[in-house]
Design a protein around this nucleic acid. Sequence first.
DNA 1: CGGTCTCTCGAACAACGATCCGGTGGAGGT
DNA 2: ACCTCCACCGGATCGTTGTTCGAGAGACCG
Lengths: 219, 219
Amino acid sequence: MWLRASTREERGGPPLSRQRIVEEAVALLDEEGADRLTMRRLAERLGTGSTTLYWHVKTKDDVLDLALDAIFAAVRIPEGAEWRAGLTALIGDWRATLLRHPWSAALLGRPMLGPNVLARSDFLYATLVRAGVAEPHLTAAAFGLSNFVIGSALMEATWLVNADAETRDAAREHMDHQRDRYPALAAHGPLTAADDWDSSFERGLNWLLDGVEATIATG
Amino acid sequence: MWLRASTREERGGPPLSRQRIVEEAVALLDEEGADRLTMRRLAERLGTGSTTLYWHVKTKDDVLDLALDAIFAAVRIPEGAEWRAGLTALIGDWRATLLRHPWSAALLGRPMLGPNVLARSDFLYATLVRAGVAEPHLTAAAFGLSNFVIGSALMEATWLVNADAETRDAAREHMDHQRDRYPALAAHGPLTAADDWDSSFERGLNWLLDGVEATIATG
DNA sequence: CGGTCTCTCGAACAACGATCCGGTGGAGGT
DNA sequence: ACCTCCACCGGATCGTTGTTCGAGAGACCG
């Protein structure tokens, strides 16, 4: 009764809200990873009971959807830039954001319909249209660019961020032990000289943009 | 005692083995989806107790890793084809396989080091090398192509296969209701004329391959 | 003061991954 | 024929998870 911390001042911090839950969820995911996100742990960090969260949020999946959309607020939408420079900036920011929150890569397999994602997708389509890209190249360009970022971030997060050094070393040894079975992979594979992810990404992105640009002239 | 079905003939089917577990896991995943895969349910389909599985397999994650690699056995490795035709065939098969087992897309965020995946990656590198692609274009090409397939399959599986009709309709209505907020997306977005995923994929793939091909001549 | 609405939380439930430990059956030796 | 051994099996059980239920506490309105 008198021991219970029931008033807001006693619990400390601002009142609970959907936004505060999502902010803390992102922080928890950043610090401990996806598998450590528990409704109980999240509630504990917020100083409340675990079941209280369900008043502000319907399910745990909702928390994940909201957290996933929240991080895309950091992706700046370029203004006034030429189309190719604008898209390069947007997609670079997109990739950097996904890598800054490595847990996000594993969540990309769910529908992304949050306002932040939609606004950036809208910019992508609008920029392509203004650049003169028409169907059927338009859909192919938007899909291709999005999928390229998603795939890159997914693979990069898998190997560079999520995997601990122990896993990476085991993988390297695993490959070394089967060097004769996968010769090309052992000689040129990603585990040999893997520190140029950035320039590899940039190269692939430019190939795509070159292809898109070529469709503008020819129609 | 006498009621217990303890001999192999009474339990029916061949003796339990790692391979049989993986086969049944793939079948279960195909029929019911990723979240329905339970050690108990899997054991039930195999006619054994759930704890028996742990004799053949260390953890549930191992089952997932094995199932993920198993489906790549269906990706044919082209022989004797010209490099660009060979890569087009391999990547097309790759994408088709991922889409035939939609649960696989969500699992791509884990290290893929199984023999089937490694053999196909080796073919990818070997083909690029034989075509005359050298560093730094080689890594960029291998990464770019892989990431493009992965991203495409992930997004496509999310929207076309995993999402039920109800979710898709809700998404369409959601977009329709905010038509003024995302004008370009509403006019040209993926939910408007979404039935050309195949040709969009082919277009994007050709942009990438064009870029790779251009690096061969110039070095 | 009474009533209603918003918000909080302890207790509880079903399901899950995983482990412990006691089996069971058949192959191989003697 | 008997024993031993060991690959293989599974019932009971533990700790944890997402989620529900119902009982409240506090604020605001009449």
